[in-house]
Design a protein around this nucleic acid. Structure first.
Lengths: 175, 175
DNA sequence: TCGTGGAATTAACCCAAGTCAAAACCTATG
DNA sequence: CATAGGTTTTGACTTGGGTTAATTCCACGA
């Protein structure tokens, strides 16, 4: 992958222990992160202290705050390690600069944004059209491996229900 | 705007009457549409016949099915005119082709995808973290003009509640 | 093997929102 | 005006999920 090579060459490596943050909601962080190994959790913390999980990031995937990178705003979510993580960090600006002169990089950036947009669109669909029970069923079907990596507690907050709620949903589906 | 000029030159114009579709859920349509005037509604129709509104498109904005354009899939939603519409249509492929040779176009495509991704991300946030009442309040604050353009019925399905539900929410907020 | 702490389940209660159906309200048209 | 259409509101009932707190389950280390 072109982009992977570029990031590997130009980015800086970092590693983090479980529980450590890569960045926090409110930070100014306009970098793109590539996860080499480990497991990340991207989450929102609402005013009343409730956690809502935006996504889990598995090795081989990218993450970064678009808002902070492009809208002169601060990060709208936090990024924390659930496992020991090895990442590569690269400022978005450096990537765009490279894209300007190298068509292959440019195409890779388009691909990256595209796959990102499609993921977000799929999630929008699930949150808008499906019930919590349906979302859980889908998760079990599509990414059963994730269930083994994180607690049910976190699955619940990813699906948009409370842990208690998810427990009941499971019971209903099983019964 | 570079991109606007390119689309205007290379795209084909079309117009549609209220109620007519630009494309339907299940279609193979890999074009990007630019709305010159009118009002569009992008919506999902679920298996049990329920409509969920993905977004409203106002003049000056773009819309198209990323899924259909890039994942060899069919459109996951339908696009219909709520008013008389004037659009410009351009196959995504033509855009990418142009982007390969013209850095300005390439940058514009990146911008387009970026703003698209950010919109989707904001919507994901609202659906995941906010209550229906909060989403309604936000809508009233941020896009009050939209309330005048579409029925409350449609606002409800955009917010993820039933028309009856929204009526009650309004009452509660007012009381 | 026993405790200890976190995770998951269960129970009891409440409220928001769905459903269905009826009523009230518009707005345009003949 | 009067009516017919669609839109919004209201009512009565049901249900899914939140909240809190108690209980059970489990994994792990002393």
């Amino acid at each position: 992958m072109e982009l992977g090579a570029f990031i590997a060459e130009n980015g800086t490596s970092l590693s983090r222990e479980p529980g450590q943050h890569v960045f926090r909601q409110g930070d100014r962080n306009s970098s793109l992160y590539f996860l080499k190994s480990g497991l990340l959790k991207a989450y929102y913390l609402s005013a009343d202290g409730k956690e809502h999980i935006k996504s889990f990031i598995l090795p081989g995937n990218h993450i970064g705050s678009l808002m902070a990178s492009h809208a002169e705003k601060s990060c709208s979510f936090s990024l924390v390690c659930l496992r020991q993580c090895n990442l590569t960090m690269l400022p978005f600006s450096r990537l765009y600069q490279a894209a300007r002169s190298d068509p292959a990089i440019s195409a890779a950036v388009v691909d990256l944004l595209l796959s990102f947009a499609m993921k977000k669109e799929a999630r929008e669909y699930e949150l808008l059209c499906l019930s919590a029970a349906d979302r859980y069923r889908r998760l079990v079907e599509n990414t059963p491996d994730l269930l083994k990596l994180v607690t049910q507690n976190e699955i619940a907050r990813y699906l948009g229900v409370t842990p208690v709620g998810l427990s009941r949903i499971k019971k209903r589906l099983a019964g």
